[in-house]
């Protein structure tokens, strides 16, 4: 559905309250097929924003609807050398696993240009040697036991700040502000015991599974990589707070890259304080390869 102006008969995308050609307000929604041509594109070898790291290489496209307006999209089901400016393209609707949103991707209209590179890969080929067994997939949605930390103290905060060279007086100088010392947001994950004896560390020195967490065994994938994380804070931490964190597996999926396939595990830690108030939610990506 895109808009069309009754007054000057131009097609409009993205939706406006008035027509950008004539400023008329008699705009009608019309169903269109969504077909178009590739106006221009690029293949981005670096993520355009950290949250797009898994989509690299991003085949960022501008599509020209047959009706005229341009739209932002990405190309799927096409190898880089088969992309040609001006080629006919057709829509591929992609539901997002973690939200209700549907993204409008595009693939070549000409089937001979399509290939399994890109997002919408041929599922049948992949399942054969997929790491995602039923056992692995059953971890999605699993919730861990709550882990209770130790009270946040001025002493610990100060030691942390010195260690990371964050000498902001609001964190380390008790005379700086009347309301006392603040707790830096980065302290969030600090006041917890790791509780893993040296003997249980894996070869790379990282606990195989952190306390309170659970991860499926992926016997063929030896290496774990940090794939980035985001923290959203809902309120401040205060001295004396005792945080509890709880783990949940948000998603597990597989992507094939140049060096074979990788499994992405998206995990969430929710931090609450002693009053039961939500302090922060941390979402991390671990890549097994």
């Amino acid at each position: 559905m895109i808009q069309r102006c009754d007054d000057c008969e131009s097609w409009i995308f993205y939706p406006r309250s008035r027509c950008p050609q004539c400023l008329g307000d008699q705009l009608q929604w019309k169903q269109i097929a969504g077909n178009g041509t590739l106006y221009t594109y690029t293949v981005s070898r670096r993520p355009t924003y950290p949250s797009f790291a898994e989509e690299v290489p991003q085949r960022l496209a501008v599509i020209r609807f047959d009706e005229g307006p341009h739209i932002t999209s990405t190309l799927v089901n096409v190898a880089d050398d088969a992309i040609e400016i001006g080629m006919a393209v057709e829509p591929v609707f992609e539901e997002q696993p973690n939200s209700k949103a549907v993204l409008l991707r595009y693939q070549p209209a000409d089937e001979s240009r399509r290939s399994t590179v890109g997002k919408e890969t041929d599922q049948a080929d992949e399942i054969a040697d997929s790491h995602l067994t039923e056992e692995v997939l059953s971890y999605i949605g699993k919730v861990g036991e709550p882990v209770v930390g130790y009270p946040i103290s001025e002493h610990e905060v100060r030691r942390f700040c010195y260690a990371v060279d964050q000498l902001n007086p609001a964190y380390v100088d008790p005379d700086y502000a009347e309301e006392g010392l603040q707790v830096p947001p980065a302290f969030l994950s600090i006041p917890f015991d790791t509780d893993v004896p040296l003997s249980e560390l894996s070869d790379d020195g990282i606990p195989a599974v952190p306390k309170g967490a659970m991860m499926p065994a992926l016997p063929k994938l030896k290496r774990r990589l940090w794939g980035g994380g985001e923290v959203e804070f809902f309120q401040k931490m205060h001295m004396g707070d005792v945080l509890t964190k709880q783990y949940r597996v948000l998603d597990i999926y597989e992507r094939s890259g140049g060096s074979g396939s990788m499994v992405f595990m998206i995990m969430e830690w929710t931090y609450t304080n002693q009053h039961g108030e939500k302090v922060a939610v941390e979402v991390n990506t671990i890549i097994a390869r």
Partner: peptide, 22 residues
């Protein structure tokens, strides 16, 4: 926020690259 960022169309590099490709 609604029509461009969800597709990763948000950085400078890619926009200039699209112009160069065209």
């Amino acid at each position: 926020a609604e029509f461009d960022i969800p597709y990763g169309n948000l950085a400078q590099n890619s926009g200039y690259a699209q112009i160069a490709q065209l």
